[in-house]
């Protein structure tokens, strides 16, 4: 009888330990996610820059794109205006709250699109050009501590809380000391790696820290990747009319 009691106690202990492990406290990781989101937002400031994108496609070769970016995080607005290549010049993406519009000067029409869509034929998504939303869009599934190069990092497993983000699962490498995302891995619904993002360079603009070099690697198509360099950064006020459809139409006249 004592033996049975002993076995039962051991099993109970194991179960309790298991549940305890499962109910890990992720509050400090969630705090990191919140700080990642906060430090990527230009609250009360406008932001503009020039994005130079090099898209490497095994089929089409290397293509260069130059995009002028205007961003106002108060009100979730951004405008991306393509300046190069000439064939796509004038095309624009206008985010107004929940609505993202794509303007094509050849048809002179606005079409509704989504932040989840890819940007042109690159490996970047439209959502990559706004502020982060890790804390609201994902929940922490687990984390590890490790190193990435010379950096001590948290490797955080995230799961999307709803369908508003393109990738249902994401893994991010965040530096312990500075809370910067150095690497991301994004997974499909079947948990297959689809895209890797690398963020080797950051710059500080006021209180905001933004990556000035981004590399997105398509993990499904060999040799497919996109590099983005951010330059001509400015936080000068941007006139309200810039974030309007009329403005995109006007710059195309």
């Amino acid at each position: 009888m004592k033996k049975i009691q002993f076995i039962a106690a051991v099993v109970l202990c194991i179960l309790v330990a298991g549940f305890a492990a499962q109910a890990q406290d992720f509050s400090h990781i969630e705090a990191i996610l919140e700080s990642l989101d906060a430090q990527s937002r230009f609250d009360g400031l406008d932001f503009s820059s020039v994005l130079t994108m090099i898209v490497e496609d095994p089929d089409k070769g290397i293509e260069k794109m130059v995009v002028r970016q205007f961003r106002r995080d108060d009100g979730e607005r951004f405008l991306l205006l393509i300046q190069e290549p000439v064939t796509e010049k004038g095309q624009g993406y206008l985010l107004e709250g929940d609505n993202l519009w794509f303007y094509d000067p050849s048809s002179r029409q606005f079409a509704h699109t989504s932040l989840k869509e890819t940007f042109q034929d690159s490996d970047a998504r439209n959502a990559d050009f706004g502020s982060n939303s890790y804390s609201s869009s994902y929940e922490v599934e687990g984390y590890l501590e490790g190193t990435l190069g010379n950096f001590e990092v948290y490797i955080i497993d995230l799961k999307a809380v709803d369908d508003t983000v393109p990738f249902p699962y994401t893994k991010i490498w965040v530096t312990k000391d500075t809370s910067l995302v150095l690497k991301t891995e994004e997974y499909s619904l079947t948990y297959r790696l689809m895209r890797t993002g690398l963020f080797p360079k950051y710059t500080k603009v006021g209180d905001v820290v933004i990556p000035v070099q981004m590399i997105f690697v398509d993990e499904l198509v060999e040799g497919q990747k996109t590099q983005i360099a951010v330059s001509e950064i400015s936080v000068s006020p941007i006139p309200d009319h810039v974030f309007t459809k009329a403005y995109i139409e006007r710059v195309n006249r």
């Binding site: 989840k116 393109p166 499909s188």
Partner: peptide, 9 residues
């Protein structure tokens, strides 16, 4: 997916 999430198999 129908709701716009990425999937691959």
């Amino acid at each position: 997916t129908l709701t716009g999430q990425q999937n691959v198999d």
